[in-house]
């Protein structure tokens, strides 16, 4: 087996100020500092980012595909959470 590749880190890049960080991929590194430098070289060679987050991959918890339907179904029958659910008389403004 080749030598230790270091921990796996998931990389999130913010493309410009004011917008959310978006998942870009992953890198291997022994610590956060090297993970950030590596992420810069791998994912922002053309100024694609103004900020980078790296997160140890094993610290991310995620919903599973199999359970997605039942997990999200509480939101299915609550159309009244959307503004379009409500009837507003013709001509009434700013609502």
């Amino acid at each position: 087996m080749s030598t230790d590749q270091g921990m796996l880190w998931e990389v999130f890049v913010q493309a410009k100020p004011g917008i959310p960080h978006k998942h870009a991929g992953s890198v291997h590194a022994p610590d956060a500092e090297m993970a950030l430098k590596s992420a810069r070289d791998v994912y922002t060679r053309r100024r694609e980012g103004t900020s980078i987050w790296v997160v140890p991959a094993n610290m991310i918890s995620a919903t599973t595909e199999q359970d997605a339907d039942s997990f999200f179904d509480p939101a299915d029958d609550k159309v009244y959470r959307h503004p379009t659910f409500y009837t507003i008389p013709e001509g009434v403004k700013y609502l």
């Binding site: 030598t3 230790d4 590749q5 270091g6 590194a29 022994p30 610590d31 090297m34």
Partner: peptide
């Protein structure tokens, strides 16, 4: 190989 090893040891010491 030595670079990866050194980086690992450095990270452990810092931690």
């Amino acid at each position: 190989e030595w670079v990866r090893e050194a980086a690992k040891v450095y990270a452990e010491k810092q931690a």
